[in-house]
Each structure stands twice: as C-alpha cells, then as structure tokens.
C-alpha cells in the first residue's frame, strides 16, 4: 500500500460513510449532512491524485465538486424548510410529491 492507495481508500471510506448516512437516517437534515460527507470523499480523491501527478487538474475538479456541493446545500436546505411543516422533517412521510 503506497500513500496514494491509502488516501484513495480513505476517500472511498468517506464516500461510503456518507452513503450509509443517507440510507440509514430518516431525518432530511441528517441526510443532507451525509450528502456533504459523500461529496467530500471524491474531493479528497481528486486532490490526492492531482498532488501525486503534480498537476492542477485535481484542484480544478475539486472546485467543480465544491460548486456542486454549494448549490446542493442551498437548494436542499430550502426544500427541507419548505417540507418541514408537512412532514416534520421525516423523509419517509414525503413519498407523495405535489407541486
């Protein structure tokens, strides 16, 4: 196991920790926090590979992931605040969509 291998394993671990959170939690707010953790796993992978090859593409991809995470958090929290009165923040109760 070289350092890059270990870092990639850790980034996969971060991703799967977040995936477990999204699947196991029923509170929408906790699922959003888990989504953040899911997105930070690939970010670590991109930066590690970029540093390994000495290229800036890794950091560039990290910035793309960051933009995605920022948009996702803003929209997700707005939708959560909207749905909270109808469902109490429980995603199991939000199985029926209405415009």
């Amino acid at each position: 196991m070289t350092p890059l291998n270990i870092l990639l394993v850790l980034s996969a671990g971060l991703f799967f920790a977040g995936l477990f959170g999204v699947a196991a939690r029923r509170t929408i707010l906790m699922q959003l926090i888990s989504l953040e953790i899911m997105l930070s796993g690939p970010a670590l992978g991109f930066v590690a590979v970029g540093a390994y090859h000495g290229s800036v593409e890794g950091t560039g991809m990290f910035l793309m992931v960051l933009g995605l995470a920022a948009a996702e958090v803003a929209l997700g929290l707005a939708i959560y605040l909207h749905m909270r009165r109808a469902t109490g923040g429980d995603s199991d109760l939000a199985h029926r969509l209405r415009g």
Partner: peptide, 29 residues
C-alpha cells in the same frame, strides 16, 4: 508529506463516521 495527509484524512473519516451516527443534529453538524 504524505504521512500527515493520511493522518488528517483518517481523522476526517473518523469524524464523518461519528457524524452520521449521532442522534442530535447539532452534534452531527
């Protein structure tokens, strides 16, 4: 060094695992 990066990323993974298993939203945050 790579060593410090691995140590910090391990800390990040440990905090993430703890975060998704907390009952309180403030602790998770």
């Amino acid at each position: 060094s790579w060593g410090f990066a691995i140590w910090a990323a391990t800390l990040a993974l440990a905090a993430a695992v703890l975060s998704v298993t907390r009952a309180s939203a403030v602790h998770a945050l």
